[in-house]
C-alpha cells in the first residue's frame, strides 16, 4: 500500500506530499504521523503541500486534525507552501485550519518551527502568531 514517507530531522518530522492525496492515504498519513511523533518525541512537524493542487473538505479536516493531534502530543505543526488556489478553496469551504501554523516555504517554515520550539523551551506560553 502507498505511504507518504515521514522523515526525521533532529527534533522535527518532515512530510512532503508529492502526489494528490486520496482519502485512504490521508488517514494513513494521519495515524502514521501521530505514531512517529510518539516514537521520536518530535517537537515539530513540517508538512509541505506545495505539490498539492487539489484539496477537499476531507483533506482540510485531516490537516486540521494532524495539527490538533500533534498539539496535544506537544508538537507544533507548520503547513508550508500552500498554493493560492488551495488556500482559496479551503476558505470557501470554511476551513481556516486553526491550530496549524503556516509559512510560505520550507525555509520559512523551519525558521518558524525553530522559533516556536526555542520559545517553548524557555517559557511555555509565548505565541506571537494570531492563530488562537
Amino acid at each position: 500500500m502507498d505511504r507518504i514517507p515521514i522523515l526525521r530531522m533532529g527534533h522535527f518530522l518532515l512530510v512532503t506530499i508529492q502526489i494528490d492525496l486520496y482519502d485512504r492515504l490521508a488517514t494513513n498519513l494521519e495515524s502514521d504521523l501521530v505514531q512517529m511523533v510518539n516514537k521520536t518525541e518530535a517537537k515539530g512537524v513540517l508538512i509541505d503541500i506545495s505539490a498539492l493542487s487539489i484539496v477537499d473538505s476531507f483533506m482540510g479536516r485531516i490537516l486540521g486534525n494532524i495539527g490538533s493531534m500533534s498539539k496535544i502530543m506537544d508538537a507544533e505543526t507548520v503547513v508550508v507552501g500552500m498554493q493560492p488556489a488551495v488556500a482559496i478553496t479551503l476558505i470557501e469551504l470554511g476551513l481556516e485550519l486553526k491550530g496549524v501554523h503556516t509559512a510560505l516555504n520550507v525555509e520559512r517554515g523551519m525558521e518558524l518551527l525553530k522559533e516556536k520550539i526555542g520559545s517553548y523551551d524557555r517559557e511555555p506560553e509565548d505565541d506571537e502568531d494570531s492563530t488562537e
Partner: peptide, 12 residues
C-alpha cells in the same frame, strides 16, 4: 476571507 486565505499561505 481574504485575510484568512493569506494566513493559510503563511503570510500576515
Amino acid at each position: 476571507k481574504t485575510v484568512a486565505a493569506t494566513r493559510l499561505m503563511g503570510a500576515e
